[in-house]
């Protein structure tokens, strides 16, 4: 389980303020908000890329914010988080299968041959069995997003974090990614936290939605609760559904 309590940060120049949320195992939650609302900064705090000003981040009971100065502890906690960054962020000069085996080689005791086999199995699981030798640079957007998901799942994380997972994809490819995430979650039971400005996610997998604006959570609830919200930002966001879905 991932829990964020009253988080503000980063330390140098805070852009998120008093954010709290929790993602239980097997649940899919969504942080939605306009661009520059602080969503990506919240994700960076959760994976320990930014030092918070105050607040706490727990992953399976261990504090991530406390581990930021301890390389060993941070590495261990990060191995329990799968992250798909905006735009996939695959390492461009290596192949798809090498991208997926990177975390395996770093964090597990498996041999290079075992890591390669596991990476190929993961690629097959996300429907990219034939793309193993392709350079990350040569993959189409939907393909690179699938490879990034396979890489994020390599260490069987407790929580999968996805930053704008369907940005830049056409409607068909975006729905395929949603379906894939649903299937993988059912199979492996991890929690999912999606950070997106696309309203369509609110009407997909997510059971709990946090609306973020100006670095704070301004509303939370399921889609029916938010639909009846009288907050102007929430209403404006949900109103866009017809055009964004």
């Amino acid at each position: 389980m991932l829990r964020v309590e009253n988080l503000s940060g980063p330390l140098s120049a805070p852009v998120i303020h008093h954010v709290s949320l929790a993602v239980p195992s097997g649940a899919t939650h969504l942080v939605i908000g306009p661009i520059h609302a602080g969503k990506s900064m919240l994700l960076r705090h959760i994976v320990g890329l930014e030092q918070p000003l105050s607040g706490r981040i727990y992953l399976e009971g261990a504090r991530i914010d406390d581990a930021i100065d301890s390389e060993t502890q941070l590495r261990r906690l990060r191995s329990r988080l799968g992250v798909v960054f905006e735009g996939s962020a695959l390492i461009s000069r290596i192949s798809a299968v090498e991208n997926v085996e990177l975390p395996l080689l770093e964090h597990s005791r498996c041999s290079p041959a075992e890591a390669r086999d596991t990476a190929r199995e993961l690629l097959a699981e996300v429907g990219m069995a034939d793309a193993g030798n392709a350079s990350a640079d040569d993959l189409p957007r939907s393909g690179s997003r699938r490879i990034a998901i396979a890489r994020a799942l390599a260490l069987r994380p407790a929580v999968l974090l996805l930053d704008e997972p369907t940005q830049g994809l056409d409607a068909g490819a975006a729905h395929e990614i949603d379906d894939l995430l649903g299937e993988l979650q059912q199979r492996h039971g991890f929690g999912i936290l999606i950070f997106s400005h696309e309203v369509r996610h609110a009407f997909g997998l997510a059971t709990e939605i946090y609306v973020m604006a100006d670095g704070t959570i301004i509303a939370r609830g399921d889609r029916d609760e938010l639909a009846s919200s009288d907050n102007d930002v929430v209403r404006q966001l949900l109103h866009r559904r017809g055009t964004a879905a």
Partner: peptide, 15 residues
């Protein structure tokens, strides 16, 4: 790689 988030992706994976 910094701009496209590849460096952050490596760090986030503990690499």
């Amino acid at each position: 790689m910094n701009v496209t988030g590849e460096i952050d992706a490596l760090r986030a994976m503990g690499l």
